[in-house]
Design a protein around this nucleic acid. Structure first.
Lengths: 118, 118
DNA sequence: CACGTTGTTCACAGCGCGATCACGACCGCA
DNA sequence: TGCGGTCGTGATCGCGCTGTGAACAACGTG
């Protein structure tokens, strides 16, 4: 799945143009670094699916994720910060503990269950 | 039966993607822990049939169920809670006292069945 | 060279998860 | 009716996974 070959990826109000290195949030442009952009493209090209850190790293950095490497987490954080600044009312990147991350526009947050409500 | 090799399992309005660690309930994502997810996959890969605790434990935890271990019960409970929160009008996990659990979307009566029909 | 940006790594904080325990409800049975 | 076995369910606790800020090095530019 070569995301860089498509003209435009759409995830909710995000429009990503891989070949231009451009991201539009509700129409106006975001300023992302190369890594941030690569990560977003990697996520967007699997939108709605859970992507493991290994996979994200391979797609964005281009190698095997070394044990203990937290680069993904750090950049997920940076990406979240910028996305949230652009669209404060939405949540795009969801964490699936033990599995990876998922990019999803619609649902702000999946069901959350503490333990039978109190 | 290696459930992790199929793309997607469907049980009623549940869609389970073993390789992603993702569950969709009526289209939108659930947040399950690794154990909860493993258990659901174990049940789903035997949907409609009663699965013993020994079998569930072996499939999910990967070892023999020790005498007195209630892990299965506890996680069945957690799973039920999350499924019920997602789809309150349905019951998926049915208890067969003395035998085990059964995952089934439609049926609601867990009667002590000798299953005559079939 | 001075400076701002970016990429990488580290350290610490916070919280979710997994394993277990405890108690109570329920049921079949003598 | 008392007893033992089976389940449901809330609670506890240590640990690992994640979130997050910051330090530092590597560049690119004027």
């Amino acid at each position: 799945m070569q995301a860089t070959e498509v003209e435009s990826l759409r995830v909710g109000e995000l429009e990503i143009r891989p070949r231009e290195g451009l991201v539009l949030a509700r129409g106006h442009a975001l300023t992302l670094s190369v890594r941030e952009f690569g990560l977003l493209v990697a996520l967007a090209s699997h939108a709605g699916r859970v992507v493991s850190r290994e996979e994200l790293y391979r797609l964005t950095w281009g190698g095997a994720l070394r044990c203990g490497d937290r680069s993904c987490d750090v950049y997920i954080h940076k990406l979240r910060a910028k996305l949230e600044r652009a669209l404060p009312d939405q949540r795009f990147i969801h964490t699936h503990v033990g599995f990876g991350y998922r990019l999803d526009p619609g649902a702000s947050h999946p069901f959350h269950t503490a333990s039978t409500g109190r």
